[in-house]
Design a protein around this nucleic acid. Structure first.
Lengths: 216, 216
DNA sequence: GCCTGTGAATCCATTCACAGCT
DNA sequence: AGCTGTGAATGGATTCACAGGC
């Protein structure tokens, strides 16, 4: 396993929570609150204060004992850690309702994730212009546009059947990171990162907990 | 802590994975494959075979030693466990791009989650008809419609600022389960279940892993 | 006094390895 | 022989509790 360590070994849940901490920090910053304690930050994210401190301790000492964390400094540090202190270029695969909604999503845009290309295999959709101004491209253009536009992350919002094919096109074009909204497990090369989002899994979780609430 | 135990104590990750197991099982069933081993199921979901068996063991003995699991029986059992062997009525709060896409989503519909009402606080949207046929309602109608239509789960797709308000309207109307797409931590009563979905957290995860891939 | 940073302790989840059944 | 079901072992992650510095 040739894993050069830049970071010794960060637990995956820690990374997930760092992203979470970002949300209240942005709000505090907007409201001009200069300092936050691990306890307050933890409460806003529904976690344990010691957890917050442990998570941050993996990367350095960002706080001041007896005082707390300086909001904008902490936010800056987390953004550096997550590499969200810069912009990322994305492309979308599949422009059904979901794909279109994702391209238009303000949450992404504000955080520096920019959709710079949109692909669909349906010839009837190719050439159409999305509200944001993007024009839907044929998948044949993918390899070229990935290079030209410096696309680093692919987002899959195709129907499940076409998701694997879409992933392979992306990998073949040199993309190493995929956010997959299709409810299917993608096969992917070792060197690549795939993150799955499946709303219906979340709903099934809810249904389970709700049903158990009701019968207690 | 007055938690009557119907189920002794099931780990949360187990529930999450049960939903995952469902996906390949449905495909096997469609293809007419009668039996599946824990090893095959595990491979399709990217987990360990022992994990699959442990997860299922919490709820009973569903397999046959030396043989495997009968696909349709197992699928039925999991659906019973997750309470997805019936339909659930949902309502959506907020009909921007994302909210609209969710209402139209086939993945939900196929799994028995039906949007039976749609609410928006913007008077300009109230009265409009969505492609699926639903007419957008004013939030004042929420309490009445929740009762009339037997809505059990609320889905929040409003901008972050309005999410807490939307949640409170839902709780006040007697809803006990919320799927929240707004990137904000909702305050909720003890007796309720809230599940958060935040795509940008997933993207930040991806960005972190990708950045670390590149510099190794 | 207050809040961070951190070793120690606890808790939980995953994996192993094999007994048990067909 | 093959694959499930499961106690035992391992490996992590969370929480506690306090030492360290403002």
């Amino acid at each position: 396993m040739p894993t050069t360590k830049k970071t010794p070994k960060i637990p995956a849940p820690t990374i997930e929570r760092l992203a979470l901490y970002t949300r209240p920090l942005e709000i505090y910053q907007r409201e001009g609150i200069a300092v936050i304690s691990s306890e307050a930050l933890a409460r806003h994210c529904g976690v344990n204060p010691a957890q917050v401190r442990k998570d941050l301790a993996h990367f350095g000492e960002f706080g001041v004992r007896g005082v707390g964390y300086e909001v904008s400094k902490l936010l800056g540090e987390i953004k550096k850690i997550l590499s969200t202190d810069r912009e990322w270029n994305l492309c979308i695969m599949g422009l059904g309702n979901l794909g279109t909604a994702l391209v238009e999503n303000q949450n992404f845009r504000q955080r520096g994730y920019r959709f710079v290309a949109a692909f669909d295999s349906d010839p009837a959709k190719v050439g159409k212009r999305l509200p944001s101004g993007l024009v839907i491209q044929s998948v044949e253009k993918l390899p070229k546009l990935v290079k030209q536009l410096n696309i680093e992350i692919g987002v899959i919002a195709t129907p499940p059947r076409q998701a694997q094919k879409a992933a392979e096109l992306l990998f073949a074009a040199g993309i190493k990171a995929i956010l997959n909204f299709a409810p299917i497990q993608l096969r992917s090369p070792e060197c690549c990162v795939v993150e799955n989002v499946d709303f219906s899994v979340n709903l099934e979780n809810l249904a389970y907990h709700l049903a158990n609430l009701l019968e207690e």
